[in-house]
Nucleic acid binder design. Structure first.
Lengths: 203, 203
DNA sequence: GTCTATAGCTGGATAGAC
DNA sequence: GTCTATCCAGCTATAGAC
């Protein structure tokens, strides 16, 4: 908050963050170099250091911006009429997962990023557990036997694992895994139905 | 097989592969440069190219060597008197998982590695399913409802996800997840017992 | 097989003009 | 705020002596 509004709102700054994201998704985090990111953003390469200081700071800022948007979206996901289906679908979304995987890979070599991801993950998980507990109680699930947190980790962990393997072109036993999970979700809240698109703050 | 035995058996070559592995585990794949890996191996940096040609080939060879050993080990895991417990324990082993995660991260930027990992993953999965099917049949599990492949992906996927989060210092809801899985395994093959250490080819 | 030396490239970061 | 120019470091790979 000590940072000036002017600096945060700069179009060049935003362009650099956007370019960093899209480079990460399309060519991996290693493609995000001062020269390439500034070229992709259409600004001069000196501006990277003017706005962010170091590459570490650029990455951290890109992750923070993503996290805020993502948490906003999460707050609405479990308001879906079929929250378990919505959660599952969101977990299976490859596009939003690709950049997360890049950040995770990046974190192995940038400690500052590692801390950001850890903090975000904890917050995200806690928020999900809170909402999911309410949902499962409504379905009459025995939460002693099947705690919301455990089901959440099982489902989202498996979803991410599936996405990871799929990004390698590995699909062995994926169909039956998806079938089992969707059968169990269906047993709790019926077949997935299609609703009117909900209004959302996220773009 | 066209390669000469002499070249494959060279002590320098093996030292380079060993050094590459340990550098990956301790400092990440980015630390595996021609200079550092040769220094760690105690050999001249020119030898990297003499033995492997390019860095890509060194990584591919390191992964192949690991894979062969790993598949050998796998063939024995499900011979444990409590194969589900053994599988779960192996999946939860952080040390052998660390290097796998590095290879996965590396694969994002080295296509040759990506292919190697995909091929290995398929083979590994198929072998596991084959053995696990026999085991579950023995326990009278309804394989129509709970296919071996699905259970395998659920358990190993969750295990890897837990390890990934733990490497970031994130532990939210891990305990209850582990408890649920171990309760279900216990329901099938009882409490985990301790056996005499089995003879194993792997070091 | 092992070594040195070096070419050629790409990157992060800074200084200073405008 | 934006730009150019430049320094310095680290990397892969190769040539060639021993």
């Amino acid at each position: 908050m000590a940072r000036s509004r002017d600096l945060d709102d700069s179009a060049s700054r935003a362009a650099l963050l956007d370019a960093a994201e899209s480079l990460m998704v399309e060519h991996g985090y290693a493609a995000v170099t001062t020269r390439r990111v500034s070229k992709a953003a259409g600004v001069n390469n000196g501006l990277v250091h003017y706005y962010f200081g170091t590459m570490d700071d650029l990455f951290a800022e890109a992750f923070r911006r993503r996290s805020e948007r993502s948490l906003d979206r999460l707050r609405h996901v479990l308001d879906d009429p079929q929250p378990l289906w919505a959660l599952w679908e969101q977990s299976r979304d490859a596009s939003s997962n690709a950049i997360v995987m890049e950040f995770i890979a990046l974190a192995n070599h940038r400690k500052a990023i590692k801390k950001e991801i850890a903090a975000y993950s904890r917050q995200h998980r806690r928020l999900q557990i809170e909402r999911l507990t309410t949902v499962l109680e409504g379905y009459g699930v025995d939460l002693e036997r099947w705690p919301a947190g455990a089901l959440l980790v099982l489902v989202t962990g498996t979803a991410r694992f599936l996405l990871l393997e799929e990004s390698f072109g590995v699909h062995v036993a994926h169909d039956e895994t998806v079938a089992v999970i969707e059968r169990e979700i269906g047993a709790l809240e019926g077949e997935r139905r299609v609703y009117e698109r909900r209004a959302s703050a996220a773009s």
